[in-house]
Design a protein around this nucleic acid. Structure first.
Lengths: 136, 136
DNA sequence: ATAGATGCAAACGGTTTGCATAGAG
DNA sequence: CTCTATGCAAACCGTTTGCATCTAT
């Protein structure tokens, strides 16, 4: 791997993802950082989210079809994707443990990691029946 | 739900997804059908994949970040996404059963279904070490 | 005859990239 | 001083959409 420099922007992006509980998208990270660093470009955010993922410092979440989200927690745990508001929630890692060791899963394929994603209606949307956003 | 007509195109698309073991993307379905129905448009394929998903006749797979795949099998089973070739494989539903009943998962959120996706290197890519495609 | 479905092509939106410049080491 | 990272804007590419036409019922 080539040498890597720790720019203010990269630091801010890592910090933003780590400190957020919302599993932010690139757009959300960009908005958040702009408050303090107005000149940061969206392209820089995208580039750094890739770099940080490759470094294993953050984790991409594929569960929401519409947008790529990122998780500051890198330990293995499931998520809930709300089919109404598209928000992503952490779930207890108990459910990952129930699967047992990954090397039992297949002898033919090499399994590196699992993703468990629950889909449903989050507690907020359950009460706020008003907002009817379509999930596709 | 509004009345629905069973066009030749829709039939062909359903048939193509059901009969494929490759968890095809819209593009793949389009190519497959073009052989026998050269005039079918990609837009029609996209529209019908949505309709058929909404009908519950096929299932969208979000596990591959790059492309939306579709599964002709609608029963609940995990998949393996190869991080080298992006191919999607079926895995035994045993792993879903290990999670236990979904209504135990959360009392706060309403859980409707789970998705378990394994990531790794498929048996084919394991032996063909030559092709080094990057997964992002 | 009447709506739903199609083909075509343009538009969309999230993400990536080329390039000149800035800035970390 | 060197070479990675940035900002900007254009390009990309998978997907959606508007519209005139076709077709299943």
């Amino acid at each position: 791997m080539a040498e890597q420099r720790y720019s203010r922007q990269r630091q801010a992006i890592l910090e933003a993802v780590k400190s957020s509980h919302a599993h932010p998208t690139a757009e959300m990270v960009h908005q958040a950082i702009r408050a303090k660093m107005p000149s940061i470009s969206l392209g820089t955010v995208y580039r750094n989210l890739k770099v940080l993922s490759a470094n294993g410092e953050i984790k991409p979440l594929y569960g929401d079809a519409n947008n790529l989200h990122y998780d500051g927690r890198c330990d293995d745990h499931p998520h809930l994707v709300c089919t109404h508001c598209h928000q992503v929630y952490d779930m207890p890692d108990e459910w990952v443990k129930r699967l047992g060791p990954l090397d039992e899963v297949s002898t033919r394929h090499e399994i590196d990691f699992v993703d468990i994603t629950f889909y449903g209606v989050c507690e907020h949307c359950r009460t706020n029946k008003t907002k009817e956003v379509e999930f596709s």
